[in-house]
Nucleic acid binder design. Structure first.
Lengths: 119, 119
DNA sequence: GTTAGTAGTATACTTTAGGTAAGTAGTTAC
DNA sequence: GTAACTACTTACCTAAAGTATACTACTAAC
């Protein structure tokens, strides 16, 4: 069996695998990236996020927000208003995900279109 | 509450959420992207993949490969050799994930480095 | 004959992610 | 007073994912 492509050295491959593994560890799962997108598009409040992200329950949203906050992607603020308002905002660090989000959204759009054409 | 950024219209946001949702539906989960990377780096055989991808079991690898084949990311070939050799190769369609994989690997590397510095 | 390699499958069990539904606590409007 | 909004929490359940070990069946080397 000959190789189909010139592969990177094994070490490089493992490095890439580890990098992607680290990324998935913090932003993997069904909801995290969607929450980040919804936040980045101006949805800052709990119920606003829940309404925007179709299918997510309050429990899951609550848990995921805590997780994202812990990992430095979300800043939670309780405002002194009445009724109480809580906002969740993307941090500076979240903006480093820009390329990831854009390439994923772009690919998803292309894939969706491909599926649509194939029926 | 004023908006922090000028958000896209709601419709655009939902479109982006759906696109990412579609993407995650086929390439989400703990292993699929790692398998695609390992394959793309010249690991074509079952045990070779299992050795390269740390932590994956034969059962999971077997299931994920079937899934990836079904979705058009993997071409499975049984070779007439002795002992029997089976190869799993990335398809043309898999190459459309290039940007996704690169941006994710790049971000993961950066994130890993950040974690390392923070201890 | 035994060890090691090829590529898996089978079985059984555990863990975790996520889903469902209801409840809590406070405020405001009618 | 009661309905509806805010932002959640709690308890329970299920299905998917993961772990562990053993097993098949074939070949080659020692």
């Amino acid at each position: 069996m000959e190789k189909l492509l010139t592969p990177l050295p094994k070490e490089k491959c493992v490095q890439k695998l580890n990098a992607v593994g680290d990324a998935l560890y913090v932003i993997g799962g069904k909801w995290k990236l969607r929450i980040i997108i919804a936040m980045s598009e101006g949805n800052y409040r709990f119920n606003e996020l829940q309404r925007t992200i179709e299918g997510i329950s309050a429990k899951v949203l609550s848990n995921e927000l805590k997780d994202l906050e812990l990992n430095g992607f979300v800043k939670r603020t309780v405002h002194d208003e009445t009724p109480v308002v809580v906002t969740y905002e993307p941090t500076e660090y979240t903006h480093t995900l820009k390329n990831v989000l854009n390439s994923l959204a772009e690919w998803g759009t292309m894939h969706r279109e491909k599926l649509r054409q194939e029926g």
